[in-house]
C-alpha cells in the first residue's frame, strides 16, 4: 500500500503552505525549533518578536519557527500532536495532565514569575478581594476555571457561592454591567476598559495565595533529550530579546505595527500599555525565565489545594543553569 508510507506527504500536498511548518518530521530537524505561543500576537510575546527580528536566535545557530496561539489553542496539544517542540502554557493545566494522564512533560523555565491573571471589575463597583466575589457573576475562560476554583479554595470560599460563566475575552458585558467581574490578564483588559470611558479595579490571583507562574516553558521529555542544545540556545536568545524589549517598553510595539501585530484587531497603544504593565511580573534577579526553589514550591502548594499533585521533578532547572554559565 504505497499511500500508507506517503501519508504525511499526502497531507502536506493537501495543506500546501501551512502544512510545511508543523509536522513532527520537520520539528525534529537539526537546529530548528518550533515554539507554540499561548495567545494571539500581542505584547505578551514581544520579547520573542524582538529576538526573531534582531536575529538573536540565528546568532545562537537556531532556526525558530513561531506558532501563534489563541483563545481556543491549547498549547500542550501542539506538543502532544508533534506540531511544536516547545510551548508556553498555563502551569496548572500542564501539571494536571502530567499528574493525571502521565504526559511526558517538563517545565524548563517560566516567563511570568507572577501569573498576570486576575479578577477585573469596574472601579465604580470594585471587587478587591476573593471575599467580595460571593454572590457575584464572574466570567472565566473555561480553561482557567480550575485556577479560579483554586484561588477560591485557598481563601475558604465555596465555589458554588460564585456564579461562573464562560468568558469570551470580550469586556463589553463587564462595561455594560451585565456581569460583575471577569478573569483576564490585568496587564491588558484595564486598558480596554479605560478606552470605553470606565475605570478598572483588579487584583491578582497571585496576591491571594494562588502563587503560580504563567507561560511556563514546556517541552516533552523526548525533545529535552534530543534537542537540549537548541533549548538552551532558545532560552538564551529569548532572554536577550526580553531584556532588550524591557529597556524601553514603548519602543518595540510600534515597530511591530505592520508585521507581528498586524491584523490582530488590537491597537498599538494597547500593546504599549501591556508591555509596561507586564515588566514587574516577569522580572527576576536571575533573569527572565528563572525558577527558584521558593517559586517552584509555591506553584506545587497552590495546585495541591485543588487536588493536582505535582512534584519537584516536573521542573528542570538545569538548562537555565547552562544559560547562566
Amino acid at each position: 500500500m504505497p499511500f500508507m508510507t506517503n501519508r504525511r506527504r499526502f497531507i502536506q500536498l493537501l495543506g500546501a503552505s501551512a502544512a510545511v511548518t508543523g509536522l513532527p518530521g520537520r520539528a525534529f530537524a537539526a537546529n530548528s525549533l518550533t515554539m507554540q505561543a499561548a495567545w494571539i500576537n500581542d505584547a505578551e510575546f514581544a520579547g520573542y518578536f524582538v529576538a526573531i527580528d534582531a536575529g538573536f536566535y540565528q546568532a545562537e545557530g537556531l532556526n525558530l519557527n513561531y506558532l501563534s496561539g489563541g483563545p481556543d489553542v491549547i498549547p500542550e496539544s501542539s506538543i502532544i500532536a508533534g506540531k511544536a517542540d516547545l510551548a508556553l502554557t498555563s502551569p496548572d493545566t500542564t501539571i494536571k495532565i502530567i499528574a493525571e494522564q502521565g504526559a511526558p512533560f517538563k517545565i524548563i523555565g517560566a516567563q511570568y514569575q507572577k501569573n498576570p491573571v486576575g479578577i477585573v471589575s469596574l472601579a465604580r463597583a470594585p471587587i478587591n478581594s476573593p471575599e467580595e466575589l460571593k454572590g457575584k457573576t464572574l466570567a472565566v475562560p473555561p480553561v482557567n476555571v480550575i485556577s479560579v476554583q483554586a484561588m477560591l479554595a485557598i481563601n475558604g470560599i465555596n465555589k458554588s457561592d460564585v456564579n461562573i460563566i464562560p468568558y469570551a475575552y470580550d469586556p463589553t458585558p463587564l462595561i455594560k454591567g451585565e456581569i460583575d467581574a471577569s478573569l483576564d490578564f490585568v496587564t491588558n483588559v484595564p486598558y480596554t476598559i479605560e478606552q470605553a470611558g470606565e475605570e478598572a479595579a483588579s487584583f491578582l490571583l497571585y496576591d491571594f495565595g494562588y502563587k503560580t507562574y504563567n507561560d511556563a516553558v514546556v517541552v516533552s521529555e523526548e525533545v529535552l533529550k534530543g534537542k537540549r542544545g537548541e533549548l538552551v540556545a532558545w532560552l538564551k536568545a529569548s532572554r536577550k530579546g526580553w531584556h532588550t524589549n524591557f529597556a524601553d517598553t514603548a519602543v518595540y510595539p510600534p515597530k511591530f505595527k505592520n508585521t507581528w501585530f498586524s491584523g490582530t484587531g488590537r491597537t498599538i497603544e494597547n500593546e504599549i500599555y501591556f508591555n509596561g504593565a507586564q515588566r514587574p511580573l516577569m522580572e527576576h534577579s536571575d533573569g527572565v525565565f528563572a525558577m527558584d526553589e521558593e517559586g517552584i514550591n509555591a506553584n506545587l502548594e497552590s495546585l495541591a489545594r485543588i487536588g493536582i499533585k505535582g512534584s519537584r521533578d516536573i521542573f528542570d532547572t538545569t538548562l537555565l543553569e547552562e544559560v547562566e554559565a
Binding site: 489563541g70 481556543d72 491549547i74 490582530t264 484587531g265 488590537r266
Partner: peptide, 23 residues
Amino acid sequence: EFGSGARWGLGTFLLGSLGRAEP
C-alpha cells in the same frame, strides 16, 4: 479557525476583536 491558532481568517479576526468592546 477557532482553535487552530491560524494567523488569518475571519474566525481569528473575530476572536481578536472580541476583546475590544466594539459592537
